[in-house]
Design a binder for these strands. Sequence first.
DNA 1: TTTAGTAGTGTAAAATTGACACTTATTATT
DNA 2: AATAATAAGTGTCAATTTTACACTACTAAA
Lengths: 233, 233
Amino acid sequence: MVEQYKQQHPYLLALDSIIFGFDGERLKVLLVKRGVEEETWSLMGGWLQPDESLEQAAARILFDLTGLTNVYLEQLYAFGEPHRDPIVRTISVAYFSLVKIADYESTISEQFQARWFSIYDLPPLLFDHGDMVDLAIKRLRYKAAQHPIGFELLPEKFTLPQLKKLYDAIYNTDFDKRNFSRKILSTNLLIKLDEKQKGFSRKGAYYYQVDSIKYQQLTSSFLNFIPNSEAIP
Amino acid sequence: MVEQYKQQHPYLLALDSIIFGFDGERLKVLLVKRGVEEETWSLMGGWLQPDESLEQAAARILFDLTGLTNVYLEQLYAFGEPHRDPIVRTISVAYFSLVKIADYESTISEQFQARWFSIYDLPPLLFDHGDMVDLAIKRLRYKAAQHPIGFELLPEKFTLPQLKKLYDAIYNTDFDKRNFSRKILSTNLLIKLDEKQKGFSRKGAYYYQVDSIKYQQLTSSFLNFIPNSEAIP
DNA sequence: TTTAGTAGTGTAAAATTGACACTTATTATT
DNA sequence: AATAATAAGTGTCAATTTTACACTACTAAA
């Protein structure tokens, strides 16, 4: 019985994160130089520890780099080509996360050489990390078209022009602002605040924030790509 | 450098498959009794071998049970709670597959005790396999709403009433057949054959088949949840 | 030839989408 | 104080898509 387990080969298990951020103009990915090949940019990653779940490990690794917790984190795909890591066979479970770039600025760990890159101007990446980024971009586009996850990339308070710029950046296009507002507001997911954004434009745009109750309902009923997790406290 | 690898814990890596089939009335999942707990129904699964990719392993395991190749197979999710397998910590990458149930009947391996279960009437399952099935059903519903993957569950030739019954079963509802036909046919993905189905009804329904060229185009442009795979021949 | 039973088709109202341009609010400049 | 500059904000119409809904058409069996 337990013999059956002992005959099996074990493998190293890594986690790699595609960390998206939005600087107001461009959709960006956070890359680091690390480990074995310090010459090459790569995704932030690390090893699974014996006492943690995959998601906990991904969250820990993200925290080590950015100092952020409570970040949007979704499993992307498990990559397991036999020679994807040429040194030792390693299975990598990739996660993608959406961070509020301003939050991150202040908390970044200095022990990593990290830099934001526009998704349209990426350097060559380690191993199959380029595939991971490509897939993450596709998934983000696919998902953001139907789920209101874009907010995760913006500050708590944001204006409609900011939100439109984000979607423009995600889809590399230029949406019509009238149709865009109509569609976004028809979800009833945004609460208009009395406050206007100062400084950027003469007129100033009203701030909005997400109606977090409605947002929870939507995400829990639909974002259920992520299952169970008995062990998440 | 390579030291860094040696310090890491390795883990067993399993694959489990949620195998969907459609018997003309109900959406079904193929379950087996196997291994450590012969008392409990479980998903078909197996171990990753050193020379194969995750997808190759999932396809091999599917073949061992069903004798089928060229089956729709999509990675679902990697499950890695520390104690999901109480004996040895194991990461399982779950795949879901869609099979033409009639093809399978003739090729099933006798060495497994296997049975189709309605998705609405599942027995208790091993480990976290129940979570896997739940997630697979959600994913199938989510995906089938926008991608024409339903055909994978039907024979080469099928009628519109059969297709409607399949969608009824997937979504546990009763679509309006007029609206259903219109929507399906508007995709231009079906080719109407001259032949009618005999025996089931007096009038007989026309058979259709998928326009495989258009289908390929659609799937390759959108099904790209599955990436790269340099090693797939 | 009649009947039983499923297959197959059409239409109108409602909702959504997409294209398109002017007015408003505010600050900086004169 | 008036004016200019700039981005914010809003409305309408046509086209398309969606939804609700019911009758006719085949064919085989009786």
